[in-house]
């Protein structure tokens, strides 16, 4: 397959397709993933090509989806579950946190649970309540899970397959408002390791770390900052658990300033953890405290307010200014 331009949604689809071709044990399951191809069409065409036994339209019950996926994994399958929207993952929270995350540990390493949970997440699509949330920190907080998120088609394609190959359970958060963003995909390229962060844009003055939907926002902020003579280094974290701190610390040691950006509320969010750890490792390098840009400590507001709620280019640049002012 040759390099081409594609979207994140199509790249996930191709990643799933490749994984299903490579391993007959890979299953796709979830609400409306079969005939419809998923509400975002991410699983489009898979049931037609792989059959109803491998692409399963499940009953409308999230705990049931994860619980039966665990059973399938115990029987030797590698289920990839789709949770239709971020805000509907909570009925499955118990199965994810108490069973999926802990069963391997409980077994003393005798059992492996190669289950992938795909979650379209984040706001910015003008949706009704429960369709715009960023629940990734709940899962990053849970030992036993791996948590990753993609920001571009190439990562979407490779991370999907890497997550499926992992013998640990992996949560893949997909930035739903970026599903139709275009980017280059070279299926023959050598992918980064699943848990590596990536310097998405080199710079010298401030490191701005982001992930998922905020990577594009931060890259746009970097372009705008350049016009004002400020050089931002953008780190796409890609993996939220484990965190690739080495890549981040190396960047902060160069720029001496760090701003962390995510859509999720800042209170006890990934930014808080990153600030604590980077401060511990870079205390003598830092010229300013680590600053965070994120959602407010609110339930996700009505969609006519989401532009005010979500971090945007200006809020990122405001934090950059504050970091440089120290």
């Amino acid at each position: 397959m040759s390099p081409r331009t594609t979207t994140i949604a199509k790249a996930v689809n191709e990643g799933l397709r490749r994984a299903m071709e490579d391993d007959p044990k890979v299953l796709v399951m979830g609400e409306d993933v079969g005939r419809l191809g998923g509400v975002f069409r991410v699983t489009d065409g898979l049931q037609k090509d792989f059959g109803e036994d491998r692409v399963i339209d499940t009953p409308l019950a999230e705990s049931g989806i994860i619980g039966t996926a665990i059973g399938l994994a115990l029987r030797g399958y590698r289920p990839v579950c789709e949770i239709q929207f971020d805000g509907f993952i909570y009925p499955a929270y118990d199965q994810i946190v108490s069973q999926l995350a802990k069963m391997g540990y409980r077994s003393g390493g005798k059992l492996s649970l190669p289950v992938v949970v795909r979650v379209p997440y984040g706001g910015g699509i003008g949706a009704v309540e429960h369709h715009s949330e960023s629940p990734e920190a709940y899962f990053a907080h849970t030992a036993g899970l791996r948590v990753v998120t993609c920001s571009n088609p190439a990562d979407a394609y490779f991370m999907t397959q890497q997550a499926i190959r992992s013998d640990d359970p992996v949560m893949v958060f997909e930035p739903k408002r970026r599903y139709w963003d275009k980017g280059e995909l070279d299926p023959a390229a050598e992918p980064l390791p699943l848990h590596a962060a990536r310097v998405a844009r080199a710079g010298t003055d401030v490191t701005v770390a982001a992930y998922g939907p905020m990577v594009r926002t931060v890259l746009e902020a970097a372009t705008a900052a350049e016009a004002e003579g400020r050089s931002l280094e953008v780190v796409d974290l890609r993996s939220l658990s484990p965190l690739d701190l080495d890549t981040l610390v190396a960047s902060v040691e160069r720029t001496r300033r760090l701003v962390v950006v995510h859509e999720a509320p800042t209170f006890l969010g990934l930014g808080a953890e990153i600030a604590a750890r980077v401060t511990e490792r870079c205390f003598y390098h830092l010229e300013a405290p680590v600053l965070r840009v994120g959602g407010f400590h609110l339930p996700y507001p009505a969609s006519r307010l989401e532009e005010e709620y979500l971090p945007d280019l200006d809020r990122v640049l405001d934090a950059v200014d504050r970091a440089l002012a120290f």
Binding site: S63, T68, I70, L74, R75, Q95
Partner: peptide, 10 residues
């Protein structure tokens, strides 16, 4: 009970 059901689906 869900694990059992999933296993049975396998």
């Amino acid at each position: 009970t869900l694990h059992a059901t999933g296993y049975a689906m396998g």
